[in-house]
């Protein structure tokens, strides 16, 4: 098993990459909404993504984050 520092150092870059992809996805949506002047008819999937970010930013549950997200993402 890796030690705590190894976990951070080993997986930092790939998580940086995934965060940037997520940020780009949210920006992409905003740009298209601004360009077309209207939101998507159904924003449920986007709302779940935003809820997922709240789960990730919190640290209050005993349930692992992945399990919480899988439950949440299964709702759409």
């Amino acid at each position: 098993m890796l030690d705590p520092q190894q976990v951070i150092d080993t997986y930092f870059l790939e998580n940086r990459h995934m965060l940037l992809e997520l940020a780009a996805f949210l920006d992409r949506y905003d740009v298209v909404v601004a360009r077309q002047g209207e939101h998507a008819a159904n924003e449920e999937k986007l709302a779940v993504i935003r809820q997922s970010l709240q789960v990730l930013s919190g640290n209050t549950s005993d349930t692992p984050r992945v399990e919480q997200l899988l439950e949440l993402l299964a709702t759409v």
Binding site: L13, E14, R16, H17, L20, E21, A24, F25, D27, R28, V31
Partner: peptide, 13 residues
């Protein structure tokens, strides 16, 4: 690049 630079989707953005 797959991880460390720009991604294809971000490039198109």
């Amino acid at each position: 690049y797959p991880v460390t630079k720009c991604s294809p989707k971000r490039a198109v953005d």
